[in-house]
């Protein structure tokens, strides 16, 4: 028995969710009394692979090929299937990033594996592995028991803790069998400066009352806190922010350390999407706004006065 953790590299480093998946994988491997093997796919990734030993990888497999430079579903599925066939893990853990959601679905179907998608935690109840995952955008949580010889956990980013536990982590290159592929890479457009909402530690979010031009004050505060800017559905519908910024049941479900809701009334769909944030601050001029019922700290007042004042105060403590 082995536990396999899939690492996700991007722009020459590992995504944070890689370390979260490894840490979760380590806990499972310790319970089962087996090795944790990490797997990295990519081009020129061998140099960074040893980094994975810090988070508990006993062994690190590297599938390195120029064709794996960009993530493509069919080549990545083929290579992973091949390696899973050789490693024979009982449990595979990966991040439920865009890529993880894509590939875990393919792998589950191809390998007839029990997949718990987008889970936020995992534990053992005796022999049984049980993972918890939100449903209905976080309105309810399900404890799910995966069964069978191969179980796949796709972990929601920002949910499982990152725990360092250095292991030997010998790096080993494995042969790359690309197999039949149909999907080809054309181009990508990345905004390197933008922090991904689902991975952000701090989110400053705005509602329809902000208006398009005024999101600047939220951006300023978010930048100061190394965070990201989110938006309510109505702010997105009015074209103030791109669709990718929408927080809620039909947008992104987020759980940052700090969520600052500015001028957001708190529709049930929005609350579902951010209620698992660790600390919630609500700023709204309407003292009856539903958002206050979920907030750890509420401030009643004008967002346009309060947010710049908060930014100035944060600057003071940041020196």
């Amino acid at each position: 028995m082995t536990v396999l953790a899939i690492a996700e590299q991007s722009q020459g480093g590992f995504r944070k969710v890689t370390y979260e998946a490894l840490s979760q994988g380590r806990v499972i491997a310790d319970h089962l009394g087996c090795d944790l093997v990490a797997l990295v796919l990519g081009a020129g990734v061998k140099e960074i692979a040893s980094e994975l030993a810090k988070y508990g990888a006993d062994k690190i497999l590297v599938a390195d090929a120029p064709e794996l430079a960009e993530y493509l579903i069919d080549s990545y599925t083929n290579v992973m299937t091949d390696i899973i066939g050789k490693v024979c893990p009982g449990v595979v853990v990966m991040g439920a990033s865009t890529r993880g959601k894509d590939i875990s679905a393919r792998l589950a179907a191809r390998l007839n594996a029990a997949l718990v998608m987008d889970c936020v935690s995992a534990r053992f109840d005796g022999q049984n592995l049980i993972a918890t995952r939100p449903m209905y955008g976080g309105k309810i949580y399900a404890d799910v028991m995966p069964e069978g010889n191969l179980k796949i956990l796709a972990l929601r980013p920002n949910s499982a803790p990152m725990v360092q536990s250095p292991k030997a982590g010998a790096v080993e290159s494995v042969p790359v069998n690309l197999g039949k592929t149909c999907v080809t890479f054309i181009e990508k457009t990345m905004d390197a400066a933008k922090t991904e909402l689902t991975e952000a530690d701090v989110i400053v979010s705005g509602g329809a009352g902000m208006g398009s031009a005024n999101f600047g004050i939220l951006e300023e505060l978010a930048a100061l806190l190394n965070g990201a800017v989110g938006a309510s559905r109505s702010a997105v519908d009015q074209g103030f922010r791109p669709h990718s910024d929408q927080v809620g049941q039909t947008g992104k479900v987020v759980s940052p350390n700090l969520y600052i809701a500015c001028g957001i009334s708190g529709a049930i769909q929005h609350l579902a999407g951010m209620s698992s944030s660790k600390v919630i601050v609500a700023i709204n001029k309407d003292p009856e706004a539903a958002i206050f019922s979920k907030a750890d700290y509420g401030v009643v007042g004008d967002v346009f006065e309060l947010v710049p004042a908060i930014t100035a105060e944060v600057r003071k403590i940041r020196g």
Binding site: I130, G138, V144, S275, I280, S293, K294, G298
Partner: peptide, 20 residues
């Protein structure tokens, strides 16, 4: 089915905190 829901729960209910 390969996955089975064994229990549903509500997320920890947040209470209104302090008004600053």
């Amino acid at each position: 089915p390969l996955t089975k829901i064994i229990r549903l729960t509500f997320p920890p209910q947040r209470k209104a905190g302090q008004i600053i």
